[in-house]
C-alpha cells in the first residue's frame, strides 16, 4: 500500500466521490497523472495502488498507462521541458527551437540530463498555436520562445535547483 502527501490524499478522496456510485474506475487517469507528479513516474507499485483505489485490476490500469503520452514509466527530470514542433510552431521555428534545446541540454527526446534535473520532450500541439513557438516546462506555458529566451529559461531552471 502506498500513501501520498496529505494534500494529494485529500484530492484523491474528493476525486473518488465525484463519479457516480460504483464508478471509481473513472478516477484512474487523473489519479495516475497527479500521483506521477508526486512519485516521479508510474511505478508498478503505483499501478497496483491506483488499481486498488479504483477497484480495477492492475492490468486495467496498466493498459491506461501505456495509452496516454503524459504518463511515463521512467522518471523524467525535475523540470520537464516540452517543446512543441507541431505545424503552427514548426512554421515559426519550433523545430529549430527543439534542436537548440537538444544541443543546449545535451539530451534528446525523452532523455534526462545526467543530474536528473532536466528532461526534454518533443511534444505534439499543446494549444499555444497563436503564440508559437511554445514550450511547456512542467505545467507552465511559455509563448513566443526564441532560442535566446529558451537559454534564459533553462539557465533559470538550473539556478532554481
Amino acid at each position: 500500500m502506498m500513501t501520498f502527501s496529505p494534500q494529494l490524499e485529500q484530492k484523491f478522496a474528493k476525486m473518488l466521490t465525484a463519479y457516480p456510485e460504483g464508478k471509481k474506475r473513472s478516477a484512474v487517469v487523473p489519479m495516475l497523472i497527479y500521483a506521477q507528479d508526486e512519485v516521479g513516474s508510474i511505478t508498478p507499485e503505483l499501478i497496483d495502488e491506483v488499481a486498488r483505489r479504483c477497484e480495477v485490476t492492475p492490468l486495467q490500469v496498466d493498459e491506461v498507462v501505456g495509452y496516454y503520452s503524459m504518463l511515463h514509466r521512467k522518471p523524467m527530470g525535475k523540470f520537464h521541458v516540452q517543446v512543441c514542433t507541431n505545424i503552427s510552431c514548426l512554421l515559426v521555428g519550433g523545430m529549430e527551437l527543439y534542436e537548440h534545446a537538444c544541443k543546449k541540454l545535451g539530451i534528446s527526446h525523452k532523455q534526462v540530463t545526467a543530474d536528473g534535473q532536466i528532461s526534454l520532450e518533443e511534444v505534439e500541439c499543446m494549444g499555444a498555436c497563436s503564440w508559437a513557438p511554445a514550450v511547456e516546462i512542467n505545467y507552465d506555458f511559455h509563448h513566443h520562445v526564441t532560442p535566446e529566451k529558451l537559454d534564459q529559461l533553462i539557465d533559470g531552471l538550473r539556478k532554481a535547483q
Binding site: T57, L59, Q60, D62, E63, G66, Y67, S69
Partner: peptide, 20 residues
C-alpha cells in the same frame, strides 16, 4: 479471467499479459 490487455498506443500497441 481478463488476463490479457492492450498496452501502448497506435502502431506500437501490443497485447500484454496481466503480469506484464
Amino acid at each position: 479471467v481478463g488476463a490479457l490487455g492492450v498496452a501502448n498506443r497506435g502502431v506500437v500497441s501490443e497485447i500484454v499479459p496481466n503480469r506484464h
